[in-house]
């Protein structure tokens, strides 16, 4: 696969991974993806359960792993 096709595929995969069970996350992630095509930290964050991600993004909880500090801050600012 050439580099352009590879990056398109990664972007599309992330786009679909942003389809969630909670509307709150759909909305935040939709807005975030309008500005950012790809974000490796987000890919990893999205493996967490929906409620946990929403707790972090909405500021209800701060006990996320350090590796998520950057992406949580970016999503909170979205």
């Amino acid at each position: 696969m050439d580099a352009a096709a590879d990056s398109r595929s990664k972007e599309m995969r992330l786009r679909w991974k942003c389809r969630r069970g909670l509307l709150e996350l759909d909305l935040v992630l939709e807005t975030y993806l309008q500005r950012t095509r790809y974000d490796g930290e987000l890919v990893e964050l999205l493996d967490l359960p929906d409620n946990e991600i929403w707790d972090f993004v909405s500021g209800r909880r701060d006990d996320y792993e350090q590796r998520f500090a950057g992406i949580v801050a970016r999503l909170r600012a979205t």
Binding site: W16, R19, R20, G21, L22, L23, P49, D50, N51
Partner: peptide, 12 residues
């Protein structure tokens, strides 16, 4: 399933 099972809308 279109999305991973535990991300179904039942989660809401």
């Amino acid at each position: 399933t279109k999305v991973f099972p535990t991300r179904s809308h039942t989660v809401a």
